Computed example of a mutant assay.
Amino acid sequence: MSSPGYQAPDLALVGAEHVRRYRETGGEVGYEWNGVHILLLTTTGRSSGQPRTNALIFARDGDDYLVVASMGGAPEHPQWYRNLLANPAAEIQVRAERFTVRAATASDAEKPRLWEIVTKVWPNYDAYQARTERPIPVVVLSPV
Rank of each mutant, 00 (worst) to 15 (best):
P4W: 08
G5D: 05
P9E: 09
V14W: 15
G15L: 11
A16V: 14
H18I: 09
R21M: 07
R23C: 08
G30Y: 05
E32P: 10
N34G: 03
N34R: 06
G35V: 01
I38A: 03
L40G: 03
L41Q: 00
L41K: 04
T42Y: 13
T42L: 14
T43G: 01
R46C: 01
S48D: 10
S48E: 10
P51I: 03
P51F: 04
R52T: 08
R52N: 09
T53M: 15
L56I: 08
F58T: 03
D63N: 13
D64V: 07
A69V: 08
A69M: 10
M71D: 14
G73A: 06
G73S: 00
A74Y: 12
E76I: 13
H77F: 15
H77S: 09
L85H: 02
L85S: 01
A86E: 11
N87S: 03
A89V: 15
A90G: 13
I92H: 02
Q93N: 15
R95F: 15
A96S: 05
R98T: 15
A104V: 08
A104Q: 07
S107P: 14
S107H: 05
D108E: 13
D108V: 11
D108M: 14
A109M: 12
A109P: 14
P112Y: 02
P112L: 01
R113N: 10
E116K: 05
E116C: 05
I117C: 09
I117V: 11
A127E: 11
A127C: 09
R131N: 10
R131D: 11
T132P: 07
T132N: 01
E133F: 02
V138Q: 01
V140Q: 01
V140A: 02
L141F: 05
L141K: 06
S142E: 05
S142N: 09
